[in-house]
Design a protein around this nucleic acid. Structure first.
Lengths: 143, 143
DNA sequence: GATAGTACAATGATATATCAATTGATGATG
DNA sequence: CATCATCAATTGATATATCATTGTACTATC
């Protein structure tokens, strides 16, 4: 178990990294210039238009600072709009631009496809078990 | 399954990130200034003294460029030595300094402890299953 | 032994992760 | 209503990830 224990985290890292590289290759092959993380953020904005940055950070499990910088980029590339609501001028309200929506719609089938490919031959029960184990690990790591 | 499929990668990311943050907190709490990744590299050098950079990159599943920069840091902090062997002057041979060995020895029990904590209540069978599933995903992602 | 191809590493550019410090705005309390 | 604590976001500093490019050294082939 000690042996397994020393390797399992390495396996998890390797797996998620392999998957991300795979996903990124697929995005590039589909002609997108988005990164996987940028796609994630766009996806959140699609589902929660007007959301503020801090909430996006929570939803995608990233740092607020990272999100701020990603949004900078997405605004620069005109995929996302920042607005400051009068109700609370500390916050910003994010939403997709027309261009952002188009980009997202175009790329979504690509994402669905590579997710499906990555999970080929993996049974639903395997996924449930995996999530259970990972949840347990996360609980152990929350002190 | 489509639903599960869209969430499972997110869970994996979240799990490994949670674990890394946990590990980093533990290192800091133990008075170390190492990052988790730096510890990994030191550990490889302990086990394979004289190894060259490209091989380290493979072993820890990182980019060669990342390793080059990490080694820069570790050399600057005097934990690692770079030597250019006469046999092949393109390559570099890496090994721990005395200080690096001391640091590693001091921190190893901390690492073992937090690994054990992170896996508390996780059965050996769960780990085997998890690795099986992740290996399958990785195989799917290698085209 | 000159040349072409290949191998190893370093570097530049850009994106992300994290922590700390700061700024500006809001809300609570005296 | 003035002050203080808190909150949202930005910014700076440093570390890592990735890709492309470059530089240097080796190797094979002619």
């Amino acid at each position: 178990m000690s042996d397994l224990g020393s390797v399992v985290f390495y396996t998890i890292e390797r797996a998620i990294k392999t998957y991300r590289q795979f996903a990124q290759r697929r995005l590039v092959a589909a002609g997108s210039t988005l990164t996987v993380d940028q796609w994630l953020v766009l996806n959140v904005l699609e589902e929660e238009p007007g959301i503020q940055q801090g909430l996006v950070a929570e939803l995608v499990f990233k740092d607020k600072a990272s999100i701020a910088r990603m949004v900078d980029l997405l605004v620069r590339t005109e995929l996302v709009e920042r607005k400051v609501p009068a109700s609370d001028r500390r916050s910003v309200s994010l939403r997709l631009t027309r261009k952002g929506k188009r980009e997202l719609v175009g790329i979504t089938p690509v994402v669905e496809d590579y997710r499906k490919r990555a999970l080929k031959g993996v049974k639903a029960g395997d996924i449930v078990a995996l999530q259970g184990t990972l949840n347990r690990i996360m609980a152990n790591c929350d002190e």
